[in-house]
């Protein structure tokens, strides 16, 4: 039984032109102890997918209008707000992209982390203090006693991100959603944070949904990958297999457009990068067919008319495309 099983999720936003689907019929599962990578570009719907799972879509502008989110066999979409609140931060938690805007500047790191305990009814201040110290040690923050008393602006970006991870781990969640956890960080710090998430997954058996646009991070840290484009998952499968034999033209283009380090022999001429023509369509454009058709070099008449369904292309490897793939 999967820890998280998302089935046919639809999230709609209200726009002046009517409701638009930011997440359109998305299904995926995360097992315990597994890292699933959700890759896509800005506007592909990957963050909205995460917010939908967490029940954090702002209901002034959008809401989940279809599908089921089964977390440990409980359907989160059918759960009353209070019950969801009891899960969130306890069994289900999230790391946000920018630690500086996700942390409250007016409270110390210690106060903000212990807020997680207070929110779930544990208000023994002295005990919480000890638990926060343990958490800070768990995420390898040097001088935890000192950091506890500091405000977010007084510590470095890498440190803030680690403090936020500590907050997400307050109750050792079953599922951790990390939305671009290292985009705001330098590469050497990025490696520290990702290695930390990987270690926690192994030691505590967390299921992790890792959202990123960085192909390198997907290749190095995920077990399986789901590629999103225009609100849909277009390809999914074991990471090694999807990278070795991508089936969807978008995945092929994405993998080919990334320059690779030390791929060139000394003296060898540099090759041109593979381009994907055009740019990412906005969700305001409505299409019947495949959203990638306009940029795709393999598109056929039927691509414009009907969204290609997911088809199995290998063990556990599915792609939503009519094209049979490279020969």
């Amino acid at each position: 039984m999967a820890l998280l099983d998302v089935r046919n999720l639809v999230t709609e936003f209200t726009t002046p032109a009517g409701p638009r689907r930011a997440v359109n019929d998305v299904s995926f599962a995360v097992q315990r102890g597994e890292i699933l990578g959700l890759v896509g570009e800005s506007g592909s719907g990957k963050s909205v997918t995460a917010l939908s799972v967490m029940g954090l879509v702002d209901n002034q502008v959008g809401r989940v209008t279809g599908g089921n989110i089964l977390f440990d066999n409980t359907d989160l979409t059918a759960l009353p707000a209070a019950a969801l609140r009891a899960l969130r931060g306890k069994r289900l938690s999230m790391i946000f992209q920018e630690p500086l805007s996700a942390l409250n500047p007016c409270y110390t790191i210690g106060d903000q982390i212990s807020e997680a305990f207070v929110a779930h009814g544990d208000s023994d201040t002295r005990k919480n203090h000890q638990r926060v110290l343990e958490l800070l040690r768990l995420v390898h923050i040097p001088d935890p006693e000192g950091v506890l008393r500091r405000y977010p602006h007084e510590i470095s970006g890498g440190m803030r991100q680690r403090a936020m991870i500590a907050m997400a781990l307050a109750y050792t969640p079953d599922l951790l959603i990390a939305d671009e956890p290292t985009t705001a960080l330098d590469v050497t710090i990025q490696a520290q944070v990702l290695n930390l998430i990987d270690r926690l997954r192994r030691e505590l058996g967390l299921g992790v949904l890792l959202i990123t646009h960085d192909i390198g991070i997907v290749a190095q840290y995920t077990d399986r990958v789901a590629v999103m484009y225009g609100g849909r998952i277009v390809e999914t499968g074991p990471t090694a297999q999807v990278f070795a034999t991508p089936k969807h033209p978008y995945t092929i283009g994405l993998l080919g457009s990334v320059p690779r380090l030390r791929h060139r022999k000394p003296g060898e001429k540099r090759t041109r990068l593979q381009e994907i023509p055009g740019s990412v369509p906005s969700i305001a454009q409505v299409t019947q067919g495949c959203r990638f058709a306009g940029r795709c070099s393999h598109s056929m008449p039927q691509c414009e008319q009907q969204m290609p369904p997911m088809r199995e292309r290998g063990p556990g490897h599915d792609a939503a495309c009519y094209w049979e793939g490279p020969a």
């Binding site: 050497t188 520290q192 290695n195 190095q220 090694a240 380090l261």
Partner: peptide, 25 residues
């Protein structure tokens, strides 16, 4: 060396954990 090691290689066949250098700038 540390910078080069910290870049995640976009090839899942070449998995290696970056020997992370400690500390911040």
């Amino acid at each position: 060396e540390a910078l080069l090691a910290a870049i995640p290689d976009p090839d899942p066949q070449q998995r290696r954990r970056a020997a992370d250098i400690q500390g911040d700038l």
